[in-house]
Simulated assay, not measured.
Amino acid sequence: MERIGPPLTGGERETLRAYLDFHRATLAMKCEGLGDEELRRKSSPPSALSLMGLVRHMAEVERQWFRRTMGGAEVPHVWSDEGDFQQAYEVTGASGREAFEAWEAEVAHARSVEAGAESLEVTVYVPRWEGDVSLRTVMLHMIHEYARHNGHADLLREAIDGVVGA
């Protein structure tokens, strides 16, 4: 996934799309060049947090917001039969290839949902939030989600091999 800096000027939708893709690419960049063992390495006990776990978690989050919420699809969770988002962090025996294939498929689907929407004003009801939510809010929420987890990814990668940087 190529990481391109968001535009300094531009329309709202273009800017939201660019920032979301920038953060998606940042997560991929933080994992670049690592093998399965390194991707599965946990941050510190008792946390189950790992780079592979973050990729798997973000596959679940992309699926939740773009397939289930915006798309209305009734699809199972990627990593859990019980609908447990935390299960994505349980990476014992998991492969990076499998994690990235699932994540990339969800990102591709999310992009198609966003591109197919008439506007950022398209809304859906979110029971957990007890209200209608716009595509704009979903995209902003995803940017927030990636930004937060990319901070975790920074620390995880540095602990693995000392690599730091944007």
Score class of each variant (00 low, 15 high):
Tyr146Ala: 02
Ala94Ile: 07
Arg40Ala: 15
Leu120Ser: 00
His109Asn: 10
Ala108Asp: 14
Ser47Phe: 06
Phe22Gly: 03
His57Ile: 04
Met142Asn: 01
His152Cys: 05
Ala88Tyr: 06
Gly72Ile: 06
Gly165Arg: 01
Asp154Ile: 03
Leu156Glu: 02
Arg3Glu: 13
Ser112Pro: 05
Glu62Leu: 05
Ala18Cys: 12
Ala59Pro: 09
Arg111Gly: 11
Gly165Ala: 03
Arg157Glu: 03
Trp79Asn: 07
Leu135Glu: 02
His149Leu: 05
Leu20Lys: 09
Ser119Thr: 14
His57Leu: 09
Arg111Tyr: 00
Val122Cys: 11
Arg41Lys: 12
Leu8Ala: 10
Leu156Phe: 02
Gln86Gly: 11
Ile143Leu: 10
Arg136Phe: 03
Tyr19Ala: 00
Tyr125Ile: 06
Pro76His: 03
Leu16Ser: 04
Gly71Met: 10
Leu54His: 07
Ser47Arg: 02
Val107Gly: 05
Ala48Pro: 14
Val107Lys: 06
Tyr125Met: 03
Ile160Phe: 02
Val61Gln: 06
Glu98Thr: 15
Gly53Arg: 01
Arg41Ile: 03
Asp132Leu: 09
Phe85Trp: 06
Glu38Ile: 01
His152Val: 00
Thr123Asn: 04
Gly131Thr: 11
Thr92Cys: 04
Gln86Ile: 13
Arg13Lys: 07
Leu27Gln: 04
Glu104Lys: 11
Arg41Leu: 06
Gly35Glu: 04
Arg3Met: 14
Arg97Ile: 07
Thr92Asp: 15
Arg111His: 11
Asp161Val: 03
Phe85His: 09
Arg128Gln: 13
Leu51Asp: 03
Glu90Trp: 02
Val91Cys: 06
Leu20Asn: 12
His57Met: 13
Arg136Ile: 05
Glu130Ala: 14
Arg24Val: 13
Phe100His: 12
Tyr89Pro: 07
Ala73Ile: 10
Gly53Ser: 09
Asp84Thr: 13
Pro46Ser: 09
Ala102Thr: 01
Gly33Arg: 04
Gly151Asn: 02
Gly151Cys: 06
Thr26Val: 14
Trp129Ser: 07
Tyr19Thr: 08
Asp161Glu: 06
Ala18Lys: 04
Ser112Phe: 06
Gly71Asn: 12
Thr9Cys: 04
Ala102Gln: 07
Ser119Phe: 05
His77Asp: 11
Ser44Trp: 08
Val122Asp: 10
Met58Phe: 11
Pro127Tyr: 02
Asp161Trp: 00
Gly151Arg: 02
Arg157Gln: 08
Leu156His: 00
Arg67Ile: 15
Ala108His: 08
His149Gly: 07
Met29Tyr: 15
Thr137Glu: 14
Glu37Asp: 13
